[in-house]
Computed example of a mutant assay.
Amino acid sequence: MERRSVRRGTRRRHDLLLSLLRQGTTRVEDLAEALSVSASTVRRDLSRLGAEHLVARTYGGAVVPESFHERPITDSARVQTVAKAAIAAAARELVPPDGTIFLDAGTTCAALARILVESPDFGHLTVVTRGLETAMILTEASFVDTIILGGRVRPLSHGLVGPLTELGLDRLTFDVAFMGADAIDVHRGIGEPTLEETAVKERIAAAARQTTVLADATKLREPAAPAWTRFDPGWLLITDTEAPDDLEDRAAAAGVAVIRAEPARPTDENRTSTPVS
């Protein structure tokens, strides 16, 4: 009975310890004080929780590692809208007036698709996509020949994956491939929720003369994704002005070029005026 009580006490202390870590208390000494136990007890607890993969040890303490959560496309469409619009506008400058491009699934690539169909200065553009929303937008433009790849539709992203998708990619080449990502690391490449996604992204990059990744700054702060696609040096990242200050230096060391897209300034027509009282 006493041993069971001790186990309950340990579990309760572990729960409190995890709660403190999630709230930002990470140093051993601070944790010990908050729990009214010795520092050595906290270290033993952290070692046990680390063995269970519930915490990640750091110098002098620990953190709770964040898990990767793929966001549904309907939710993604409501966040970082200004940054995505700026990135899409910068990417539009890289689209050839005539030629073939690849446009990925995802909301940032869909924003680029919207800009393309509203641009009157293109010749005849062929756009290949694996995104359902992207394809629907592109069909609005008479000068765009829209090709959608076959495959299995992923429920969250509405992107196509699988052998049929890869089969189509094996028969195509692109002047530029514009790709989205769930996470970005200039050394590791782009992070995705599944190995299927990474396989598709690798085929896309192999078929493109230029690989360009469109990703807002939050993707640079994402926790480690389950799967990664590494590109050859020379790819381009278009992000927004909220990206880390040292991004360009780290990217240059990895052979990656970076464009920071500035948000559009409001025009006199859409700027709201404040009435004078």
Score class of each variant (00 low, 15 high):
residue 216 D to T: 10
residue 28 V to S: 01
residue 50 G to N: 07
residue 43 R to C: 09
residue 237 L to E: 13
residue 104 D to H: 09
residue 84 K to E: 11
residue 158 H to A: 14
residue 237 L to S: 14
residue 76 S to M: 06
residue 248 E to M: 02
residue 224 A to G: 08
residue 245 D to H: 05
residue 71 R to W: 03
residue 35 L to W: 03
residue 277 S to D: 07
residue 4 R to M: 12
residue 105 A to N: 04
residue 131 G to L: 13
residue 77 A to K: 04
residue 276 V to I: 04
residue 272 T to R: 14
residue 256 V to Y: 02
residue 30 D to G: 12
residue 86 A to N: 12
residue 46 L to F: 10
residue 9 G to N: 03
residue 21 L to C: 12
residue 213 V to I: 12
residue 244 P to G: 09
residue 113 A to C: 11
residue 62 A to K: 00
residue 108 T to H: 01
residue 101 I to C: 14
residue 1 M to N: 00
residue 108 T to L: 00
residue 175 D to S: 04
residue 43 R to S: 10
residue 277 S to F: 00
residue 172 L to S: 11
residue 204 I to W: 00
residue 142 S to V: 12
residue 184 I to A: 07
residue 152 R to V: 15
residue 20 L to T: 00
residue 114 R to I: 05
residue 236 L to C: 02
residue 107 T to P: 13
residue 185 D to A: 12
residue 91 A to D: 13
residue 88 A to S: 09
residue 268 D to V: 04
residue 132 L to F: 06
residue 115 I to E: 15
residue 208 A to Q: 04
residue 163 P to N: 09
residue 37 V to I: 15
residue 252 A to Y: 05
residue 98 D to T: 15
residue 268 D to L: 08
residue 38 S to Q: 04
residue 48 R to F: 02
residue 267 T to L: 08
residue 67 S to F: 01
residue 31 L to N: 02
residue 107 T to C: 08
residue 271 R to W: 08
residue 134 T to A: 10
residue 243 A to M: 14
residue 173 T to G: 06
residue 78 R to Y: 00
residue 121 D to I: 04
residue 273 S to R: 13
residue 65 P to S: 07
residue 120 P to D: 13
residue 167 L to A: 15
residue 61 G to F: 02
residue 262 E to F: 00
residue 109 C to Y: 01
residue 75 D to I: 12
residue 94 L to Q: 14
residue 20 L to D: 02
residue 90 A to K: 13
residue 85 A to S: 14
residue 224 A to I: 07
residue 234 G to L: 01
residue 163 P to L: 11
residue 179 M to S: 14
residue 113 A to P: 09
residue 121 D to Y: 05
residue 269 E to R: 05
residue 252 A to F: 02
residue 92 R to F: 00
residue 255 G to T: 11
residue 42 V to L: 15
residue 216 D to H: 08
residue 113 A to L: 08
residue 274 T to R: 07
residue 140 E to D: 15
residue 32 A to Q: 10
residue 35 L to Y: 06
residue 17 L to S: 02
residue 29 E to S: 15
residue 117 V to W: 03
residue 186 V to R: 07
residue 202 E to Q: 15
residue 49 L to F: 07
residue 253 A to Q: 09
residue 1 M to G: 06
residue 103 L to Y: 03
residue 211 T to C: 01
residue 174 F to A: 13
residue 71 R to S: 03
residue 99 G to K: 07
residue 129 T to I: 11
residue 111 A to I: 04
residue 215 A to V: 08
residue 82 V to W: 00
residue 249 D to S: 13
residue 3 R to G: 09
residue 227 A to M: 00
residue 90 A to I: 08
residue 100 T to W: 06
residue 222 E to K: 12
residue 208 A to D: 10
residue 58 T to L: 12
residue 146 T to Q: 06
residue 173 T to W: 01
